[in-house]
Design a protein around this nucleic acid. Sequence first.
DNA 1: GAAATAGTTAAGCGGATGATTCAGTATTGC
DNA 2: GCAATACTGAATCATCCGCTTAACTATTTC
Lengths: 107, 107
Amino acid sequence: MLHDPAQLDLMFQVLADPARRQMVDRLSRGPASVSQLAEPLAMSLSAVVQHLNLLEASGLVRTQKVGGVRTCQIEPKALRAAEHWINERRLSWERRLDRLGDFLAES
Amino acid sequence: MLHDPAQLDLMFQVLADPARRQMVDRLSRGPASVSQLAEPLAMSLSAVVQHLNLLEASGLVRTQKVGGVRTCQIEPKALRAAEHWINERRLSWERRLDRLGDFLAES
DNA sequence: GAAATAGTTAAGCGGATGATTCAGTATTGC
DNA sequence: GCAATACTGAATCATCCGCTTAACTATTTC
């Protein structure tokens, strides 16, 4: 399920927004409530919730509501999937360069 | 220069589009001309050039024109920067979880 | 040098995106 | 129970994006 292309699509789309990356950054340092997430951001709480919903839909963040407080945390597996996509492409290219180097060295 | 936030911003934005990721994917298997890049994509050549210009502006792809042919290749350093951003956040979170586990084990 | 190939640029259009406001719902603390 | 806190949802709006078409330039081939 982690390599579902649609999910990957969503994840990169979600990471493309600076505010959402800032939220991920904040969460990488520990769980936070919606208000805590919103605090450093120059936008309405409502806007933050909309971003948060996207983050959750993409699987990058998990949230749970206890009482009146919604607590958010990172889902590292999802981050790993995005990381993996990039890594694969980079390695593929670098292996190609290596083979090319070998070929040139032999000639 | 690789960790310039504006550049990182551009890179994630560029990776967010499926067509552009497909182009990166194609290039990870070797250099290609604009027409070759366009061939599997269901859009006009013009649209491909526009995507390509973004890819180049973000630093993810380098191109050089020889005669009438523009040849494109991946810039692995840039890919590494995006990879690195994700990796840092994921690790930060996972280290936190480890410390928490240690704490619970001790109690 | 004419035709074909390869790419570029500009204008414009429709739909997605990110934000705001405002009104509404729980839940907590006094 | 009432006020304050902590969100949530809907409507709206301006802007941005990705695409198309069309006109154009540069290069190669015959």
